[in-house]
Every structure is written in structure tokens, then in C-alpha cells.
């Protein structure tokens, strides 16, 4: 099962939508850097197929409050998610 890492704002890039349409059942998504703007409560659900995580430090840096369907994680947990999934795909444009 794939771990998708998204790093661009959903308002400026197709990274998140491309990721969502390339997401299979059981995959997981991690929002980092500017992609955390997609982690707020008011942002529409990204996908039903995969749990969505958000890097807490990047959200905090930007004053983002993470919505209830998204789980905040630290870098250690991110590494663990990488060990639990394969392959790992980065969406950065």
C-alpha cells in the first residue's frame, strides 16, 4: 500500500488532486509543507479511500488548525508510516 506525501497548497498546485485521483483503497496520505492548507476543517474531503495525516510542525508554523478527519503527526510518526507503507510517492508540483 502506497504512502502519498503531498507538499504543495491545493490552491496553487494540482499535487493534491493528482494524488487523490491516484490513491487506491488502503493507501495513506501525508500533508506536509504548504499542503497543510488542505488539512483544515473547511477544506473538502480529499478522498474516502485513504486516511489523511498532517505534519503537525508544518501546520503549527502556519497557524493551521487541523480538521477532525485529519490526524496530526510528528516527524517520528511520519517515519513510522514510511516503514509501514510501500512504495512512497511524493507529489511536490
Amino acid at each position: 500500500m502506497t504512502l502519498h506525501i503531498v507538499s504543495k497548497s491545493p490552491y496553487s498546485s494540482s499535487a493534491l488532486t493528482d494524488c487523490a485521483s491516484s490513491c487506491a483503497e488502503g493507501d495513506a496520505i501525508v500533508l506536509i509543507e504548504d499542503a497543510v492548507y488542505g488539512a483544515v476543517e473547511t477544506y473538502p474531503e480529499i478522498t474516502e479511500r485513504a486516511p489523511v495525516y498532517c505534519l503537525q510542525s508544518d501546520a503549527e508554523a502556519r497557524g493551521i488548525v487541523i480538521g477532525k478527519n485529519v490526524e496530526g503527526i510528528d516527524e517520528t510518526r511520519w517515519v513510522t508510516l514510511c516503514t509501514e507503507h510501500n512504495p512512497i510517492v511524493s507529489w511536490f508540483k
Binding site: 507538499s7 511536490f92 508540483k93
Partner: peptide
């Protein structure tokens, strides 16, 4: 490697 992680610009 077991895992490759890419960090974009």
C-alpha cells in the same frame, strides 16, 4: 534501499 523518499523543491 528499502525505502526511497523524495523531497521536492
Amino acid at each position: 534501499s528499502d525505502r526511497i523518499v523524495t523531497f521536492g523543491g
